[in-house]
């Protein structure tokens, strides 16, 4: 893995919105811009961006994955920090890319892009040095630490920010370290295992009656939310950045949720 300690920390940043936010979760991408701007950043959104290529990478179809990654690397030129509201896509940028480019001539150039990439929560806390978040959000939440942030500072960073928000209660639940069962294309190639894993996660989450299931990855939430809705017992889900944004608005007396 790329050395995460040496990533750039400047306030002019490039936003990688992720393909899921591009297709389904525009509010998460909007909240990311607003939160970054609140933190004093100037947010650049390179319009040529598509996806980090992880679906093809995880399928073992690395030539296809490299094609997408090469495009992504060319779109995110420069030396600014690249901020991603997804632990999974961030890990693809700073770790997966180094694997799929083993033995490729342009590995160093690709690694240079990965070495500028931050997961959003990690960047707010460890890049910008924000220790607490202002505002208020009155709710009881369960925080699902997305698996691709294992071994990175992201999980602790997000919790630190959420814990500092007034009115927000974070409830622990059973087997928190377990995966939700999404796993990208795994969710369709192993639908029985994926669904069983998700059902187990939902059982633990429902047992603590949270108002919202919160995560830093919309893919986990798409899977869990989709399962719950199909079962006829929908659950409300939020990306943590939506809470950060809404807490600010509460702070100024206007709610968006």
């Amino acid at each position: 893995m790329i050395n995460l300690a040496t990533r750039p920390k400047g306030k002019r940043v490039q936003l990688m919105a992720t393909c899921l936010c591009d297709a389904f979760y525009d509010d998460v991408a909007r909240a990311t811009v607003e939160v970054l701007e609140h933190a004093g950043c100037e947010v650049d959104f390179p319009e040529g961006q598509t996806c980090c290529g992880q679906p093809a990478f995880n399928c073992g179809q690395w030539p296809a994955a490299r094609k997408v990654m090469r495009h992504t690397a060319s779109v995110f030129a420069g030396d600014a920090p690249i901020i991603v509201p997804s632990g999974s896509c961030a890990a693809m940028m700073f770790h997966g890319s180094t694997l799929e480019f083993e033995g490729e001539k342009d590995r160093a150039a690709i690694a240079q892009v990965g070495a500028r990439t931050w997961e959003l929560g990690d960047y707010l806390v460890n890049g910008l040095g924000i220790k607490e978040w202002p505002g208020e959000f009155r709710a009881k939440i369960a925080f699902h630490r997305a698996c691709h942030t294992r071994g990175t500072p992201s999980g602790a960073a997000v919790l630190q920010l959420l814990q500092s928000i007034q009115g927000l209660e974070i409830v622990p639940f059973g087997e928190e370290e377990q995966c939700c069962g999404f796993g990208g294309t795994f969710s369709v190639s192993f639908p029985n295992v994926s669904t069983a894993m998700g059902d187990l996660k939902l059982e633990h989450l429902r047992a603590v009656h949270p108002d919202y299931i919160v995560s830093g990855d919309m893919s986990c939430l798409m899977h869990l939310g989709g399962l719950a809705e199909r079962e006829g017992q929908p659950l409300k889900t939020l990306h943590f950045v939506q809470i950060l944004r809404d807490a600010l608005h509460q702070h100024h007396g206007q709610a968006t949720h």
């Binding site: 591009d22 389904f24 909007r30 959104f45 369709v188 798409m222 939310g225 399962l227 199909r230």
Partner: peptide, 24 residues
């Protein structure tokens, strides 16, 4: 087939493609 495997146990969220880009 891939979509079917997803939809059997899960719903898909509403399509919002391009909305963020226009907002930006």
């Amino acid at each position: 087939p891939y979509l079917g495997a997803w939809l059997k146990t899960r719903t898909l969220p509403k399509w919002r493609g391009g909305k963020f880009r226009s907002w930006m």
